[in-house]
Design a protein around this nucleic acid. Structure first.
Lengths: 155, 155
DNA sequence: CCGAATGAGTTCCCTCAGGGAACCCTATTG
DNA sequence: CAATAGGGTTCCCTGAGGGAACTCATTCGG
């Protein structure tokens, strides 16, 4: 889709960006997440070009991030829903939201709030270590080559 | 930079994508994070066009994600480093890595591993609620309008 | 029975951003 | 004095994004 093939790089960031690294995709996912699941609704709520929307949806289907269900046959009408893979991408969106709220929201405050089911409070995500549970930021880690680092000098 | 102005939308995802929603930016940030800080090094390690690299760096400087330091005057030579704002974007990269590792890595395994300073273990980030500390996924929350939701029907 | 509306796309054309190569400028090095 | 290095800028070409119009199948209103 992009000029450069990011999906082929030995880098999980590049590969993830190959899937959603074009700014409409996260917004499409967000809208499907909050219940805007049909082509027409998506196009209107986002103001995206119909052509580009069709391309993105096809792309996200191919990657297994979305599924298409027929909610009416004759005439066939479809709606798009998140797969597990896609729902986990929404976790990434929550982190984007957190950064955007912190650094770009301006005086009006965050446009959207999130209430955590478990505790019932308005909250936000915080990255923590899956092993020890302590906060885990980019400043708190060492980067080491992994098994899939391979030939690619790009990683 | 993009055709559509994402930065003006009342949505933190859109605003974040306005900053890094073009697939080279996260890779530039990643490389600066791991110590590739100069124009020439960045261009060669990423295989990015010099023109596009210059554009991205300027963009990221304007947004306060990067800073430029002169490491040699006469001839003036610069290196780019992350601001706090930029370092917090790297937390977002860690989440991208996690998703990419889980869903796109293939049989070779993840290309890069991360060791958490606090516990010394190879680990990965997990999103948790900043209030109660329990896991906080997209499936675990309600979305509510916030103070900055405003007029925009896009949100 | 005819015309309009709905939903989901597809097609066409235009413009602008990405890619690549060449070029520029300043200073140091051999 | 030529070559090299670092950090860009300029040029041109192609292809992706934007917008509007069109298609196709079906249903609804009068």
């Amino acid at each position: 889709m992009q000029r450069t093939r990011f999906g082929d790089m030995a880098c999980s960031i590049a590969r993830t960006m190959d899937v959603i690294g074009e700014p409409w995709s996260p917004l499409i996912l967000r809208n499907i997440y909050i219940g805007v699941t049909r082509f027409e609704q998506l196009q209107q709520s986002l103001g995206i070009s119909r052509k580009v929307l069709a391309e993105r949806l096809k792309w996200l289907l191919e990657y297994g991030v979305l599924e298409r269900q027929e909610y009416s046959s004759r005439p066939p009408r479809y709606e798009y829903t998140l797969t597990t893979k896609g729902m986990e991408l929404c976790d990434l969106l929550l982190v984007m939201v957190r950064w955007g709220d912190r650094w770009l929201a301006g005086p009006a405050g965050p446009p959207v709030l999130y209430r955590h089911h478990a505790c019932g409070k308005i909250s936000h995500v915080e990255p923590r270590c899956a092993e020890c549970g302590e906060p885990m930021h980019a400043t708190d880690i060492d980067v080491l080559p992994g098994p899939g680092s391979d030939v690619e000098p790009t990683d």
